[in-house]
Amino acid sequence: MSSSAKKPTDRVSWVWHGVYALVILAIGASLYFASKRIDYSWHWERLPEYVISTEGEEIRASFDGFVEISEDGKTLTMTEMKGSGRETFSGFSQVLVGQGDLVFQNDVLARKPGIRPGPLLIGLWLTLKISAISLVFALPLGLIAGLGRVARNPAARNLATTYVEIIRGTPLLVQIFIFYFFIGTVLQLSAFTAGVAALSVFTGAYVAEIVRAGIEGVARGQMEAARSLGMSYPQSMRYVILPQALRKTLPPLTGQFINLIKDSSLVSVMALTDLTKAGREVVSSTFSPFEVWFSVAILYLLLTGSLSLLVRRLEKRLAHD
């Protein structure tokens, strides 16, 4: 009976998978034809270079002077123009200057071979780093604020509520400006520190609401049972309520971390080259905005997608316990 009941549902679900593929294809095709109409010339081949650079390391002149290349082309010697400094380089694969050229300090002389992360990958790394560090601070902050939200003490409760309402009631971009220009200046914070502070404080408020919902989701009887055994409020929270609440908050917390990764793109307004800022810079040197922004989007998706996958695994394992 079960096999005969199963077949029709299988067929129906395949139909819908087909519909899905068709819609995606249609959207892709319309994008393609739309780009044809605006006479845009695609240069996807330029992109990989900005993700993983094969250009190698640059060798730069450390003073103004003249170039001298050995006969076999394997060593390059610089002689200082106003002085007696000499500098010899070797091990490069490509020379970018000519015999006897006058070059100035910081000019690129040659390139060493090798692959290096390109600007987009470096930006991705900064995005990951700033999000992860912000999360590390946001979690305890949110936990404390969340506990404050459910506390009986009016001072704790009102402080937590004020914090959450202010943060949730103002745009993140404005908060970042305040942290960068005001708090950052007063406390002499670096752009990175100011960015981490802004993102932590912002995310902490949302984590607080998640924690509060988690605590309120634990059955009332749990607290009563714990208290009836003589456990204090903090003990009951720590050993009985929070372990249950936090398990429930894992999915919304992941969502919040994914938001954090995306929201971190706003720190590009500060002097921080995260993935978004790197994208902007690459656009200005390639003049290929479409390819770059699509690539940036894919890189963000890679980050957020692997994170959801990871947490889904973790959840399954927790569910088995």
Binding site: A219, G221, Q222, A225, A226, S228, G230, Q244, R247
Partner: peptide, 20 residues
């Protein structure tokens, strides 16, 4: 209160065991 409650055991209709 916490000390006093250690002397008073309570059993609830819904058991209220700690599920974790």
């Amino acid at each position: 209160l916490n000390r006093l409650r250690t002397q008073v055991g309570m059993v609830f209709q819904q058991f209220n065991l700690f599920p974790h």
